[in-house]
Design a protein around this nucleic acid. Sequence first.
DNA 1: ATATCAGTTTGTCATATGTCGAATTGACGC
DNA 2: GCGTCAATTCGACATATGACAAACTGATAT
Lengths: 140, 140
Amino acid sequence: MLETFETVAKAVADPSRMRILKLLEGGELCVCQIVAVLDLAPATVSRHLALLKTAGLLQQRRSGKWAYYRIADKEFNDYAQRFLALARASLVEDPTVAGDRRTLARVNAVPLAVLCQHGRATLGRDDEAAEANACRGEPA
Amino acid sequence: MLETFETVAKAVADPSRMRILKLLEGGELCVCQIVAVLDLAPATVSRHLALLKTAGLLQQRRSGKWAYYRIADKEFNDYAQRFLALARASLVEDPTVAGDRRTLARVNAVPLAVLCQHGRATLGRDDEAAEANACRGEPA
DNA sequence: ATATCAGTTTGTCATATGTCGAATTGACGC
DNA sequence: GCGTCAATTCGACATATGACAAACTGATAT
């Protein structure tokens, strides 16, 4: 259907959403991690994730207070997996995507109990003391 | 570049433009043929075609008063040909696309001197007398 | 040079979209 | 039950976008 194609195509035709997809290629992430990397409001990220999920590009699970999103591994419609393949083959050396990955590494070095409370501001404090893990302590 | 990806993705993420791409898979067309099939204002079609061309998805040539567009056969950027391949594999049995192709067959049965002057209205008059060819009489 | 024609550009309008702040919802701890 | 936290939904705003009409541009015929 033309409408489905449009829905999926529009989903990847936004830079913020494309950045999310490239982040998730590395594996499932908690919303708060995506928020910290992209430095966008949680409402914005939540809206983007919902749109990607509606387009059949992502899957979601909840664990306690946290929501995790990952790249869809099923065929939810005729086009999602094709666009995911195209996205995977794209932007391989893009500086924005590469920068996001570096930021994600720093995000992952911060205990999420801290990240969830103080957001991206914690990234500049490498001397922050370690705390108990929260949402990131639960692999898929 | 993320910006280029966005430009190309946005170009195919619109139904009218996707219909144009599917039409052009059958070969080069004059603007007036596309106008007749899509039943959109010439200004609208012209805007869409310009956007597709900017995205590296189409090429254009002029011949007299007429402008012809065809699917790009060169790599104008990193993504255009990838999206063209995806588009070619998509909407193969879509009813809107199929209907456009049927309409195009009827458009092609009308001499373009007539079509260019009277537009889509000529499609309902199968008894129209043949006239000299105009823009369609010039194959690539 | 003038008129006609086809396509393009400009201007306008209604609608869509990305973003953020506020409000809401659901999970958790006490 | 209450307070806290993370994510989601809602509302508002600025900007973008698809559509059309009008104006413009370039090609052609006379």
